[in-house]
Design a protein around this nucleic acid. Sequence first.
DNA 1: AAAACATAGTTGCAAACGTCCACTACTCGG
DNA 2: CCGAGTAGTGGACGTTTGCAACTATGTTTT
Lengths: 169, 169
Amino acid sequence: MTHETTSARSITVANAGLDVLEHVLSYYIRTLNIAVSRDLDDKLEGLEVAKGTGKITTLLLVDRHPGIRPSVIAQLILRDRSAMVRLVDHMEEDGLLTRKADEQDNRAQGLFISHKGKQLAAQIRPIVVKQSRDFFSDITDQEHRMLTSILERTYRRIAGLNGNGETGR
Amino acid sequence: MTHETTSARSITVANAGLDVLEHVLSYYIRTLNIAVSRDLDDKLEGLEVAKGTGKITTLLLVDRHPGIRPSVIAQLILRDRSAMVRLVDHMEEDGLLTRKADEQDNRAQGLFISHKGKQLAAQIRPIVVKQSRDFFSDITDQEHRMLTSILERTYRRIAGLNGNGETGR
DNA sequence: AAAACATAGTTGCAAACGTCCACTACTCGG
DNA sequence: CCGAGTAGTGGACGTTTGCAACTATGTTTT
């Protein structure tokens, strides 16, 4: 049917409707994700934790909860254990943290932050917070808080931070 | 400083605080993204448009705007042109759309949906909408609308589709 | 106490992207 | 006509991610 009349050049970024996606939350989450991730990477350039939510979250979690286990972090960042292993490998190589076998449970291990890791964590915290705030510059503080708390709800369910846990893989 | 009393095994998914990330919108965007993407992939399993926001958006855009150019779509989905080329390659191979050289501008091309593509688009629309709604099941309709429109604001700025409709190109 | 089952970490493999960069073809303004 | 900018393409890389299989260890059953 339609294929000739609509002059292609009239379809610009500014006037192209997104079809149903315009009202689909997941579309914005998915798209904004790539933008916000890119932006964050820039802000973190050179800091050994660029790329991926994983490193940052892991660093902060280990700093905050000495002895936390890889598998727990994996659940929180929604990755599988194998991905987690590599993450820890890298971070250990970079001297940000260390593994220590758990004394009670020999198959488990605990993660501990290094001095260098601690400093990096301290350095990163303000950057991460500010980045998020700056990125969503056209959102009021109130809206920002609201979004955060609403999304937190879904996140907690998915990650199993609520009642009991499902793995939501 | 929380640490000694906290034996490693007591740090569970349920009680591990996320440090500053707890109040960082971008953290939720980034993390939820991977969950929502996985979920969507499941719902779309087998449908030739699984994986990545790109295919779906492209399909719907081409269906909606016959003759739209790859570069325009690229801007909307926040990818670079080369990524777009491959996307179109695949979709053309799959018989979802076709390229046609633009008559006015020989360096450009227009994308047109195929019959198969049109059917797929029709099939996908409800799924995508429902998926988003279902995924964020613990959010009220009103909140969902609010989130969508707030995020849309940021998206539009990022993608450069603000204000005026036809910025002379 | 042995067997069966579950959990933590690990590794290999392979698919899927995204990014950077260079290159061609073409348009347009001056 | 020239120079600048744009559209599409292709190649090479480096990463990330997911799956499946495997080990070691812990827990539960019978």
